[in-house]
Structures are given as C-alpha cells and as structure tokens.
C-alpha cells in the first residue's frame, strides 16, 4: 500500500506544491488545510516552506496555534512521522516538537543558494537510504535559518545522534551552530531542516540528491507507530 503524505497548507505557505509533487514521486500525496482538525489518516505529515502568518512576531510563532497543529502534535506523540522544511522546521521548533530555535542569518540577508549537506545519522526513518557521510546538494533559501541551541541542549542533541544533516565546509552561510542543517527529536520521528529537499528531486533543476530522503520516508512510514494505516 502506498505511503500517504499530507502537506499542510498555511496562509503564507509557498512550497506546498513542490512538496506535493516530490512526495507524489514516492507515494500518494494530498494537501491538508490549516483549519482542519484531523489529518485524514495520512502516514507522514509535512510542514512546507514559506512565510506562514507573514512571519509576524517571530518566524513560526503564530502558526503553532493553527487548528491543525493539535493533530500534528498528537500524530508526533504517537510516533507518527513529521517532516518540517524551512518554515516548517521553524514552526516545529516553536511548537516544541523539535529542539532549538532558528535565528536570523548572521549576514542579515535572505540568502538563496545551493548547499552541500553531509548526512550524519542514517539510522532514522528520514535518512536510512543514505550512507553516513554522504554529501547531497540541496537548495536553501531563507532569512532566518541560523540554528541555535544553548550549550547544554546542544550537547544533548549531538550526543543523542539527533543531528541528521550538517552543512559541508564552506556551505554554512547562515551561521548555524556546529554547522547544523537538520535535526530530529529524541524519538527520531520528527525531522526539521532548513534546506529544501523538495526542490532537489529531479536532475532538471540541478540535483535529485534529496529524492532518497523521500524514498526513506515512504519505506519507513508503514513501520512507524503512528501510521495512518494502523489506526
């Protein structure tokens, strides 16, 4: 049975269509609306990039109270898979589903560039089809992507193998601590990253390196505890 992906569309989302197309390559994908209060039984929830609620107050701050976020938190708590891309990552940290915070880039600019990423921990539903140390080329485009965690939390994230992606040398343009580009939660079922894997699934746009991430998700989803197929 094909894995079902649900991509949440918030007011101000802008990458939901590319995410939908990327997920459609490996499974069935549909859009979910921010005012929905249930996830319609999808296996994987994806929070796409964009500028939800206009980035008012702080990036990702307002959206954590969107009606659908209760169901997303419940899905995550039950072991279901959640992926947050760019703004989706910011939202997940604000909602407390992922550790750390995303601060304005040190260069104070909205920066758009191709970034080389090193896949660190491959023993997760998101990265199990990659080899440890593998380098993937993925576009990144954001103004507030500087990952930060205070020293104690950072040590916990590092020791727990929660860093899944790091910027390769010379590619940490936003000033993230320890070159961190993507982290997972302790349960390893929620993952957030600043670069955009959904824009790197076809050689036509320069790289299909991130297709593996979606394949990983599609094959891991049926095993995840919170999978819609099992409820």
């Amino acid at each position: 049975m094909a894995t079902r992906f649900g991509i949440v569309q918030f007011p101000g989302s802008c990458d939901e269509t590319d995410t939908l197309l990327a997920c459609s390559r490996v499974g069935d994908a549909e859009l979910l609306w921010h005012k929905d209060t249930d996830l319609g039984g999808v296996d994987v929830v994806v929070l796409p990039g964009g500028f939800s609620y206009g980035d008012y107050l702080r990036v990702g701050a307002i959206v954590q109270f969107a009606p659908i976020m209760g169901a997303v938190a419940e899905h995550a708590a039950g072991g279901g898979l959640v992926l947050g891309i760019c703004n989706g990552f910011q939202v997940l940290t604000e909602a407390g589903l992922l550790p750390g915070a995303l601060l304005p880039n040190t260069n104070l600019r909205f920066t758009c560039q191709q970034a080389d990423l090193i896949v660190e921990n491959t023993e997760t539903p998101f990265t199990h089809e990659s080899a440890p140390g593998e380098i993937i080329s993925v576009p990144a485009k954001h103004g507030a992507g500087r990952f930060y965690a205070p020293p104690e939390l950072l040590a916990q994230i590092e020791d727990g193998g929660q860093v899944l992606l790091r910027y390769a040398e010379g590619h940490n343009f936003n000033g993230s601590v320890n070159d961190i580009a993507g982290v997972t939660n302790e349960g390893r079922n929620v993952f957030g990253l600043m670069p955009h894997p959904e824009h790197a699934v076809d050689p036509l746009t320069g790289s299909d390196d991130a297709l593996k991430l979606f394949h990983s998700l599609a094959s891991a989803a049926p095993m995840a505890v919170g999978s819609g197929d099992m409820t």
């Binding site: 107050l57 701050a61 109270f65 604000e94 750390g100 915070a101 930060y148 205070p150």
Partner: peptide, 8 residues
C-alpha cells in the same frame, strides 16, 4: 507562550 521565545 507567545510573545517571546525563552530559549533565545
């Protein structure tokens, strides 16, 4: 809860 992010 909202106005500030106590982590940062």
């Amino acid at each position: 809860k909202l106005l500030a992010n106590p982590l940062i």
